[in-house]
Write a protein that binds this DNA or RNA. Structure first.
Lengths: 341, 341
DNA sequence: TTGTAAGCGTTATCAA
DNA sequence: TTGATAACGCTTACAA
């Protein structure tokens, strides 16, 4: 049978209470006895029973992370960061995948919430009402979404789009398309805002809204045809997978990237995998996860050892210019203008 | 305060013992009382305290999955399957990522092992000795690796390589390269075996071993140069990321895929993302995860409702032919033979 | 600084 | 079929 605290206490010749203190709050016990207990614990291979501890303290030492789709490299990268930071802080992480179903996300938070100290929720499309309900009885941190006063970590979408637009503008592009993410997605809404701000405010750009697409290469394929028909010289995609879908589809259609159309992705999850390599907005994924954990555990220091400044940090995004963007052709490809029917 | 079993019992006018039975083993209690208890539980919003239950039953209702790298789409897909099946069976899943460090994998199994009913371990490079030690005191199922009598799920690497080799042979390729995975990787060893079997047994193929590479696009880039210098008309890569790295590098070098060299990947995790689309061996990732869970929980039925036949199922792999393979050129590209030295 | 003892919320054992 | 009652392993008042 496995060693219990009583066994340790007996072996060390002290009471269970002292043994408990020696291991959990070492400064409350005299050095001599503490050493005795530590030795006994080691000898017996003692490992505290988490259930018993949880039962009395109410804390589990565990977190949970709920995401829409683990197979999406964005969320996988996030999970990796979360997991790493949680481990540093002595916590384990339940990971749950909702298969892009916001209802299931709520259910998962509720179910898993019962056995964790807090939850990291990444739910771009859950309704505000559902979110409110969850917040009411679960300590949680929102990732990549802001909602009232709920603690959250987001990325600077506005600045990201500003960078992308400025880049394309500098390359001479004047008419660009946006291939959006799932309708209802919080990030997509912010990016649309940022795009409008950047395009109409700072630069004189015409923007064609191509609509909403599944955030996968399949969605990108659909978007690709619209790009070809939109008479644009550049396109911003909701994420890298959509961007690659577009590139692939354009190639099939005989439209060169970047020669005929420049393409900008988002996330930088697939950088090295393609040709031409994708110009994209790099998101500090691992950091996003780490900061979220710090926020949740109310740690006073983040991954870099600095204090978490705010209860709603905004992480920077950085444009990485690679081969998929190039100067606009002097004359954009003619629009397929076969008169209106 | 949250409702406890005592509260439910009181509200239903029965003893705590009866309330417990009514909810956990309904058939042990008279229908009338059972209904009473169920109603009270519902009214009070009763949710059992898992810690208390665990403390006495010794079961947690949780699993854990340990993988080398969540950012690798292979493991992300696996995690997704594991998570889905576990949820169906009422279990939650801790996910831990070792950053490709076998020592950390062992540590994670030990640490998390204390708070789960069992562990799914995906550790391609852990030493046999370390594995033995873990098996000794943790219920675990090995994924993608076989080790003695330990329950495990693997894929049919031998058949996979046979399919790939047969395909290339049929296309007229007679001299092909293999760009291997991390040295020490169990899967890589099996694939090398399979390759030898297929190449020397069934077909008359010459195989050039390019060595071991990091299982990422970066590793593939390095492999790409070796491919170009090897005087082969085709190459098999350890996985899709390596394959894409090779494709990309060859393109930079002016070697056409599939015109000059055919490329075959493994896993089918990146199929739609590239051009030419990758011919690859599709691995049933989600199923791998689901079967592993079934094996661990000793479920009598797997994801498809059939019984898990064996304690070491071998899942089939399927060659998916896409654009990255084509008939060999009549004359392979000349080897760079500038005399020796 | 240490020990005694009372729980935490549940299930399991035993009698009734 | 049901109800007392005793655990499960730990932490924490409270007393000494």
């Amino acid at each position: 049978m496995v060693a219990t605290l009583r066994d340790v206490a007996r072996a060390a010749g002290v009471s269970p209470a002292t043994a408990s203190r020696a291991l959990s709050s070492p400064d409350l016990v005299a050095p001599a006895r503490r050493a005795l207990v530590e030795r006994a614990a080691k000898d017996l291979g003692y490992r505290p029973n988490r259930a018993a501890r949880e039962l009395i303290t109410g804390r589990t030492g565990n977190l949970c992370l709920v995401v829409p789709d683990l197979a999406n490299p964005f969320f996988a990268g996030l999970a990796k960061g979360v997991q790493a930071r949680a481990r540093e802080l002595g916590h384990a992480v339940f990971v749950a995948d909702s298969d892009e179903d916001p209802r299931l996300e709520a259910e998962l938070v509720t179910q898993l919430g019962a056995q964790v100290d807090g939850t990291l929720l990444c739910s771009p499309r859950m309704s505000s009402a559902a979110l409110d309900a969850l917040v009411r009885d679960n300590p949680l941190v929102l990732v990549n979404r802001r909602h009232g006063e709920v603690p959250s970590v987001v990325i600077d979408n506005t600045d990201g789009l500003r960078q992308a637009v400025r880049h394309l503008h500098a390359l001479g592009h004047r008419r660009i398309a946006y291939a959006g993410g799932p309708s209802g997605s919080w990030s997509d809404a912010r990016r649309r805002d940022g795009l409008e701000l950047a395009a109409h405010g700072l630069h004189r750009l015409e923007v064609v809204d191509l609509g909403s697409f599944t955030p996968t290469a399949v969605g990108g394929t659909a978007a690709g045809d619209l790009v070809a028909a939109a008479g644009v010289t550049a396109v911003l995609a909701y994420n890298d997978m959509v961007a690659l879908g577009i590139v692939e589809r354009l190639r099939v259609r005989g439209v060169g990237v970047p020669d005929d159309v420049s393409v900008v992705g988002y996330d930088d999850t697939l950088a090295t995998l393609t040709s031409p390599r994708l110009t994209t907005l790099a998101v500090p994924l691992a950091r996003l996860g780490r900061v979220a954990v710090d926020l949740l555990l109310d740690g006073t220091a983040d991954a870099d050892g600095r204090g978490v400044a705010s209860h709603a940090p905004v992480l920077p995004v950085e444009l990485v210019v690679r081969g998929s963007t190039a100067p606009a052709r002097p004359v954009p490809p003619a629009e397929p203008t076969e008169a209106h029917r």
